Simulated assay, not measured.
Amino acid sequence: MNIPEGMWIKCGSCKSNIYANDLEETKQVCPSCGYHMPLSAWDRIELITDNEIFIELDENIQSLNPIDFPDYERKTKTSTLKTGLKEAVITGIAKINTEDVVLAVMDSRYMMGSMGSAVGEKITRAVEKSIELRYPLVIFCASGGARMQESIFSLMQMAKTSAALGRHKEEGLLYITVLTHPTTGGVTASFAMLGDIILAEPKALIGFAGPRVIEQTIRQRLPEGFQSAEFLKEKGFVDKIVERKDLKTVLSKLIFFHKERKEA
């Protein structure tokens, strides 16, 4: 018997085969082990925002090829055709359970969510829009790190986004990051870990360099699971691990409590 392609999906953690319709109902969470599979940016936006309350910002910003890296334009065009996205992050103004926010959501399907000039610019503009509107800022991180095809231009985005968030902090505004699987490299080393409140999805991979690179640098054995959300929470780098089904409620409560404190 021929089984239609895409009917069954293998869990990336427990390796069990899951009926695709079941995954749609659980929002891409494995019903067997609770593993949170990557979620597209638009699916994430639909999951956490109020119905039809999302105004996209800067949707036409795209990276160029600042160092004439071979084949780069073909790769970005291929990513756009596969995902329908123009870049690895979507930004906009939204409501989460009636609470106003500026939202940025990364998508690992677009060149592994890597941060190039366009991603850095869109994140920075989202920070500035948050300052302008006096709205809280929420960023969902999902990234393999800096985009190597843009070399130093990509690395500059770490400083650029961090400087914008420094101005955001001076304004006394709330910034929440949600670390999803995976959050690594230059994104971790910049805006991902600068949140006033840092949330993470269960079992998310969070780190800067790979384990082998770290072991070779510090010449020490690393503990099991040291780059997991659970390990980072234990060590105080993550404030709370939140299951996907609870994220909308948790985010809206945090924003509401912060608003109440500011108005008191």
Rank of each mutant, 00 (worst) to 15 (best):
K95T: 12
L199P: 08
P202W: 03
P202M: 07
V138Q: 00
G120N: 09
I93L: 14
M115P: 00
L155Q: 12
E150R: 03
G195R: 00
A104G: 13
V138R: 01
L173M: 04
S190I: 04
K129D: 12
V127N: 05
T183H: 05
A159C: 03
K203P: 00
E171R: 13
T184Q: 13
L199N: 05
K169F: 01
Y135I: 02
E201I: 11
G145A: 10
T98D: 14
T183L: 09
E99A: 07
I123E: 01
K75C: 07
T183R: 02
E99F: 03
V119N: 07
S130T: 09
S79G: 15
A189I: 02
K169T: 02
S143W: 10
E170P: 01
P182I: 10
I152H: 12
P182K: 00
T78I: 11
M156W: 00
V178E: 08
K203F: 10
T161A: 12
E73Y: 02
I139W: 05
E87D: 14
A192K: 11
E171C: 09
V187Q: 01
L103C: 07
I176A: 03
L137M: 08
K75T: 10
T91P: 03
M148T: 12
M193L: 15
K129M: 15
T83A: 06
K75D: 14
Y135M: 04
P182L: 06
T76M: 15
S114R: 14
A192V: 10
R74F: 12
S190V: 06
A164M: 03
D100V: 01
E121M: 12
V187I: 15
S130I: 08
E87T: 15
R74L: 14
P202C: 08
A164Y: 01
T98A: 09
I176M: 04
G185I: 07
A204T: 13
E150A: 04
S151T: 10
G166I: 00
S114E: 13
E121T: 14
T98N: 14
R125Y: 06
A163L: 11
K160R: 15
T98P: 02
L103P: 02
L85V: 03
T83M: 08
L174R: 04
N97P: 02
A94D: 06
K129V: 09
G144H: 10
S190F: 04
V89D: 03
I96R: 01
E201Q: 14
E73Q: 11
M158N: 12
T76F: 08
R74K: 15
E132P: 00
F191Y: 14
S143K: 05
A126S: 15
L103H: 09
V187T: 11
I176G: 00
G195F: 02
A200E: 08
A200C: 05
A164I: 00
T184Y: 09
F140C: 06
G186R: 01
G84W: 04
V105D: 09
R167Q: 11
P202Y: 09
S143P: 06
V127C: 11
A159R: 13
